[in-house]
Amino acid sequence: MKTRYSFGGDEHIFVECDEEMSLEAFFKGMSITTALREAQIKGVTEICPANASFQVRFDPDVIAPEAMLSELKKLEAAAQAAPSTLETRIIEVPVFYNDPWTHETGQRFRERHQDPTSTDIEYTARINNLDGVDGFVATHSGAPWFVSMVGFVAGLPFLYQMVERKRQIQSPKYLRPRTDTPRLTVGHGGCFGCIYSVRGAGGYQMFGITPMPIYDPTQTVPYLRDFMCLFKPGDIVKWKPIDHAEYDHTVAEVDAGRWMPRIAPVTFSLSEFQADIDGTNARILEALNGH
């Protein structure tokens, strides 16, 4: 992993922790951006962690670009010595896999897909050697996922599977992007999952839909009253498969302002994870059950 710094015009520094995606590269970016936030350097206006990189926006009238760069390099050196733990939270996200709405959208844009004769979920199961839709759902919802970036549009989380690389689900994006994706579609492109926070264009495979709003600019959904976006980089997500009846019930509860997501605080240690992936994941998931 070699860190690469580059100026994005006179107001940004772009920092690539690694060319390729890995939990280690994400974690390095999280460590440095967390330290940067705590350092409260004058002139820093935006700190944006991404998957294997991060970006800082600054006001060059307050801090000169070269000075900003040397501050970041200092923080990088300090972050390498710091313990690799993260105080974060786990959020359970109910998913109605293989739902009729993303299915209908998938059929509408079928000529833009690699395999027009099957569905997105069947196709992805097949190319990942999973046992049909059921096998896919078990794998997709089995291990937790890291929110490795929030963005593209407001509140949209990119998610990275917390399993070794050879067990990760991978799928290409659509050959040509769709012009429509239902709001709250659970999608996947490359090695990343996502939840579409708003309706709109998209190129990721569509696996299902969640009844849980994650972005609410009107701030009327009870758990989005304090802030309109649910996810932050560093959050951990556990998918919970639900059926059509539970989906409908949850939507009704959300609309009535009664539904709340299950969220629990959790400490993540990168070294513990690297030593024992399944054991660490089991411990993280237990936090959701109040253990």
Binding site: G8, G9, E11, H12, F14, E16, D18, E19, E20, M21, S22, C48, A50, N51, A52, S53, F54, Q55, R57, M149, G151, F152, F158, R165, P172, K173, G189, G190, C191, F192
Partner: peptide
């Protein structure tokens, strides 16, 4: 690189500077 996608113009999804 792993996670970047197959087109040579693809990168592992990253933040875009204003004006980039």
């Amino acid at each position: 690189p792993f996670g970047a996608g197959s087109d040579p113009s693809n990168i592992v999804d990253a933040c875009y500077p204003y004006g980039s």
